[in-house]
């Protein structure tokens, strides 16, 4: 009798409560989270961007996207166009348009919106590494020789052309440096061929806070590693970029086919 009751109860639970069981399949097709919400944008970011731009938008090999100053400065149409079409000659691939498995344009618009709304919020009073200097590179602007002087004064400590020439070169352990800030050359012709002029300018203007590189606001380092507080102005930024660009085709002299440089 008791067994019968248990059986009856079990059957009722099974039939009546089917919808509460863990095996009930989720809705098909799965509901789409709008890309302009924080969750929707982050899901697309994790699948399409995190590989290079880093988990949560920082500490990737490519420029961090969790950078409010940067996201506030770059027009959304530019962010959209770069994501959709990629940047030929650089490592930024095409994510929309006629790529295989493209992100549709409407989703991409919402995605940019979601990214700027989530990561691009400047706190009131927060210092801007860019000091409001224009983001866009103007071809032909700047003076390379003036740039050379600024580079010598503010950049060369962390970015020595030759490691052995660095003030932080460790004579006790050849090949190493004593200061983790010292990372290596930005006038390496191979490096310069892989990046766009805009990349150079963006790096100078916005820096890479996640890796300890200052933006135009500084502070910088003097050649012997002392702090230099004096910031860069718009003219100095253009000069620096012109200086770096001047190394792009310097060596090797051989003309190359299919090079990455624009």
């Amino acid at each position: 009798m008791r067994l019968g009751l248990i059986c009856l109860l079990g059957t009722t639970v099974l039939v009546g409560g089917c919808n509460d069981l863990p095996g009930k399949p989720p809705p098909n097709p799965a509901p789409v989270i709008p890309a302009n919400t924080s969750a929707g944008f982050e899901a697309i970011y994790a699948e399409r961007c995190a590989g290079c731009h880093g988990n949560n938008g920082v500490l990737g090999a490519a420029r961090p996207m969790r950078d409010a100053d940067y996201l506030q400065s770059i027009p959304r149409e530019t962010l959209f166009a770069v994501t959709r079409n990629g940047v030929p000659g650089t490592r930024m691939p095409q994510m929309g348009g006629d790529a295989v498995d493209p992100i549709p344009d409407d989703v991409l618009h919402k995605f940019i919106e979601g990214m700027v709304d989530t990561w691009g919020v400047l706190k009131p009073g927060e210092p801007r590494p860019s000091r409001g200097i224009a983001w866009k590179h103007v071809p032909g602007s700047g003076d390379a020789s003036r740039g050379a002087a600024i580079f010598e004064a503010k950049c060369v400590y962390c970015h020595p052309a030759q490691m052995k020439a660095s003030a932080a070169y460790d004579l006790d352990r050849p090949g190493t440096v004593t200061d983790p800030l010292v990372v290596g050359s930005v006038v390496d012709p191979f490096y310069l061929r892989l990046v766009s002029d805009q990349h150079l300018r963006s790096s100078v203007v916005y820096g890479r806070a996640d890796l300890g590189m200052p933006g135009a606001a500084g502070p910088f380092r003097s050649p012997d590693g002392k702090e230099v507080a004096e910031p860069l102005d718009a003219e100095a930024v253009a000069d620096l970029v012109a200086y770096m660009i001047s190394f792009r085709d310097e060596w090797p002299t051989r003309a190359e086919k299919k090079d990455g440089a624009p």
């Binding site: 880093g54 990737g60 090999a61 490592r91 970015h159 390496d188 890796l211």
Partner: peptide, 13 residues
């Protein structure tokens, strides 16, 4: 990613 030169970061990319 940390303590890598700009060229090496391009290599990672």
């Amino acid at each position: 990613v940390k303590h890598r030169s700009p060229l090496e970061l391009q290599g990672a990319l």
